[in-house]
Amino acid sequence: MTRLTLSVVLAVMMAAGCGSSPRQGADTVTVLAAASLTAAFDDMKTQFEKSHPGVTVKITYDGSAVLAQQIINGASADVFASADQATMSKVVAAGLTDSVPQVFARNRLEIVVWPTNPKNVVRLADLARPGVVVVTCAESVPCGAAIKKIEQSSRIAVHPVSQETAVTGVLSKVETGEADAGVVYVTDVNSAGGRVLGIPFPEADMAVNDYPIAVLKNTRRSTAAAQFVDFVQGVFGRQALDRVGFQTP
């Protein structure tokens, strides 16, 4: 009985162990990309695999800081696309990039409100109006650092009731109607479809986010990885980025 139990336990553990280890084919490019790139990079993956037969692209999306942390802690990946320069710099400083990071996209902030805009928010200063419940990102994440910068240069002080740790947190607070307005990226507004309304504001020019991409040091597929980086910066890549609201250099 005990022997049976033990062998079952061992078998299950071994099966689980085998199942979870990544079995990557010879031509799989592993890309770690900022969550805001999801729609654009999914598009590119399909197109890239079509034009490069035999090559598979595997993309993991998460917050840039989380991904950078994974790379620094030894995650095996071939390409890293970050939502800001500061995060990419950490990976560069750790000596883990193989190519000089290149900016392939820019993203700007937009005010986001309910589709009907009940509080009639039309400009940044409206967010400082009493009675308008505002949610922004925390300063420690890129979207929060950007709004902070804008607040300082425009001298408009927004008083959020919550400092979310990700743009998705801001979006969901506005989508559910808990907050009257939030500040997120244009691309987030677009990916939310009709559930929210985006309002561009001129002060957003003061803090535009650059998205750098680089091939990683320990890649075993440097050719395919470099091809993918080129592809992102090429005609199709730009189209895919434009479609979701990124500006391309």
């Binding site: 919550s162 400092q163 979310e164 740790t165 947190g169 607070k173």
Partner: peptide, 9 residues
């Protein structure tokens, strides 16, 4: 907590 109450110091 973060979903229902948000995050404010």
């Amino acid at each position: 907590t973060i979903t229902f109450a948000g995050n404010f110091p």
